[in-house]
Design a protein around this nucleic acid. Structure first.
Lengths: 344, 344
DNA sequence: TTGTAGGCGTTATCAT
DNA sequence: ATGATAACGCCTACAA
């Protein structure tokens, strides 16, 4: 490891003091032009790089942001891209850690980053997490923290998310308008906020249209394809079959779709299907799946912006940005031809 | 920011010296049991956390690994998960940076992490990158560096990748065996290694079966769905139409598929299609797309293992792990019924 | 067993 | 305009 040059080396070679070099480097006003030139030249030659560690230690800030996400699926990796974009611009480096939806991993990652590696956090909470002590520790240190996408009332912090209720509402009302009567919902895990809020939207839509929610049509299952597949099989095998299904993720929609096809039912004729996230593949399967689109990249950018704002202003815990999702209607749920033209 | 406790605080409160505290903390052998107990108790009470920055500065190592990837799509995020798994186990924290396939971003990210933030790098090269000076700088510093997935001959470093040639070969030979005669390939950008190697595999398979490669059937286009869509449209509109297409990514396969459907051709009867990556959605579209599966998670784990090995052994530049991919045959290319049973 | 002193690379304060 | 010195939090000879 041929060690990197330090200001000390430069000082020694130039026969000037360390502090002068330091000043010259940072374009301080009170330094002789020639001296500066000499310093610059030599530092170039030695390809001097200031040591961030020393700087961070001194200034007690790292200019790193810890980003903790449950996974890096389509939606979250797009959001992270948004965070990255803004953070980089503002001179921050992003450290991404996946918790794999595991509470333990989330704790470990948080603790590690907390060890003076980052100035603060941008967090999306794992679905497994029910205790928030590790995050509260961040706040006890009065570190900036922003929660995004998967927020929780347990954490008082500036946040940005989409209007999940509205998303659930749009999806459900659309199905109602298409004439579906018995609309089931495959909701996610019970302790997951986005799951419950999308469910609320579903209930709202039913209520608005005077349809009584039926508990047999409200299924909580894990957030993935396989569980959705099984849940749908059971729904379709039961005696109170649904004629439409709203799944709160596209992965789950796929699971549902497989079960539906297996049973020989046709979408949208026999049964309607709407997913959530608008992942690219919804547009590729047959039939194409209607899905609620969310502005993920934008959301990530806002999360980072909130963070940066929060750095300078600690009175922001009440800030809660909410972005509107938008239903994309496709074949899987469109059984009444739209008035003006064709399905996208 | 109520500042965290340091060993200094502990020393002062306990009326002992800093070094004793330091020793007690690290379970040094030569420290009185009572002293240690007292130190432990107080450090617990003050919820003391050693300052990683100071440690890193002192020891000149951070125990961070910089991971630079062109994006976080399905394959790469799975690989990163593998890296994460092993790295965490070994006491390393992973810093992931996306270059967004941009050379500039890749440089910026590398430089940032290089500023004493990481002990080394695990890298997958962006498709845009043709100059490797930023990576060579890593090596000049004699930092450990491992290249994975998207490797390049320009970088002498331990690496792990899949056998892309074999993947291309498997896909192509399978199409030949299914009786396709005019097999086109949608290869990626020309300067991308995996693109060319998969293309080589394609050529090999053709040669083996005495089919003369036709330059009109070899298309280089950007690594995404839209370009593949256009390229396929052109192929199918030309006078020398292919009767099968091998795309070197599943995203591209989707683009091809859209163009094929648009033209009213049926898969696998009229035209065969094979993709690469075995992304989950290949199993979901209609028809299901045959695709070359690669052990992404495993590959990530190996990358991290190589890194850790490399930390202790600098003579590893020749190491080159190669994992075998495996073709998953599905409906899009299967026009001869398999002998033993059904398509998966 | 414990304490003292010096150093990691940088900046900031106070002299000169 | 420049230099000396202390400090950030920790570790490690060396001394006691």
């Amino acid at each position: 490891m041929n060690k990197p040059a330090t200001i000390k080396d430069i000082a020694r070679q130039l026969n000037i003091s360390i502090s002068t070099v330091s000043r010259a480097m940072r374009n301080a006003p009170d330094v002789n032009a020639d001296t500066r030139k000499a310093v610059m030249a030599l530092s170039e030659e030695l390809s001097y790089q200031p040591n961030k560690l020393a700087l961070s230690l001194k200034q007690k800030q790292t200019h790193n942001i810890g980003v903790i996400v449950p996974n890096l699926d389509y939606v979250l990796s797009t959001m992270v891209k948004g965070i990255d974009e803004v953070a980089l611009e503002a001179g921050y480096t992003v450290m991404v850690c996946q918790s794999n939806e595991s509470f333990g991993r989330e704790m470990v990652n948080t603790r590690r980053l907390l060890d003076s590696l980052v100035d603060g956090f941008i967090i999306s909470v794992s679905s497994e997490t029910k205790v928030f002590d590790h995050f509260k520790k961040i706040q006890e240190k009065e570190m900036p923290m922003v929660v995004f996408d998967r927020i929780t009332p347990h954490l008082k912090a500036p946040s940005v998310r989409i209007d999940n209720m509205d998303g659930g509402f749009q999806a459900t009302e659309h199905l109602i308008e298409q004439g579906y009567k018995r609309i089931a919902i495959l909701a996610g895990p019970k302790n997951l906020g986005i799951s419950n809020t999308r469910l609320e939207g579903y209930i709202h839509a039913l209520n608005k249209h005077k349809i009584k929610p039926d508990n047999d049509l409200i299924i909580h299952c894990d957030f993935n394809q396989d569980y959705a597949y099984v849940a749908t099989q059971e729904l379709l095998a039961g005696k109170k079959k649904p004629d439409a299904i709203f799944t709160i993720s596209d992965r789950m929609a796929i699971g549902a779709m497989l079960a539906i096809k297996e049973r020989g039912l046709k979408m949208p004729q026999d049964i309607g299907l709407v997913g959530f996230n608008n992942e690219p593949f919804t547009n590729l399967v047959t039939p194409r799946i209607s899905s609620v689109d969310q502005p993920s990249f934008e959301l990530g950018k806002i999360a980072a912006k909130l963070f940066i704002e929060r750095v300078h202003n600690s009175d922001m815990d009440h800030v809660e940005e909410i972005l509107k999702p938008k239903l994309c209607i496709r074949e899987s749920s469109q059984r009444i031809a739209p008035k003006n033209g064709r399905v996208k």
